[in-house]
Simulated scan of single mutants.
Amino acid sequence: MSPTFTASAPAKVNLLLRCGQPDEKGYHQLFTVFHSLNLRETVSLTPREDGKITVTNQPADPSQSAITCPPELDELPAEKHLAVRAVKLIQDTYGIKTGADLVVTKAVPVAGGMAGGSADAAAALWAAKHAFGLSVPKVELLPLARQLGADVPACLLGEILLGTGYGDHLKLLGPVPQRYWVMATNQTGLSTPLVFQQADRHPEQLAAELPTELSEAELKLLQGTDSSDTWTDFLELLENDLTLPALELRPDLAAPLAGVNALKDVDQQPLTRAILSGSGPTLAAPALDLPSAQKIAQTFQTYPGIERCYILQGPVPGAQLH
Rank of each mutant, 00 (worst) to 15 (best):
V110S: 11
A121S: 13
E140L: 05
A127W: 01
L141W: 04
L157C: 14
A150W: 02
S118T: 13
T105R: 13
P143T: 13
G158S: 08
P137R: 11
A128G: 09
P109Y: 03
A119H: 05
A145E: 03
V136Q: 14
D120Q: 12
V110R: 02
K129I: 00
A154L: 04
T105E: 05
S118P: 03
H130L: 00
V110E: 02
S135G: 04
L156I: 13
G149A: 13
F132T: 12
F132C: 12
G133M: 06
L157E: 13
A124E: 01
W126R: 13
L144N: 10
T105H: 00
G112P: 06
R146W: 02
V152K: 02
L141R: 07
G112R: 04
Q147M: 12
S135Y: 04
E159Q: 15
G133D: 10
C155Y: 04
A111V: 09
L162G: 07
S135N: 14
W126K: 12
R146K: 15
L134A: 03
H169Q: 15
P109T: 13
G158N: 09
L125S: 09
S118M: 06
A124M: 08
H169P: 01
A122F: 02
D151I: 14
G165I: 10
M114G: 07
I160G: 04
A121M: 07
A121N: 08
G133W: 06
H130C: 02
G163N: 05
V139S: 15
L162D: 05
K106M: 05
G133V: 02
A128V: 03
K129M: 00
P153Q: 12
H169C: 13
A122N: 06
P143D: 11
S135R: 15
A127V: 03
G133F: 01
A154Q: 03
F132D: 11
A115M: 08
V152Q: 02
A124P: 04
C155G: 10
G113Y: 01
K138W: 00
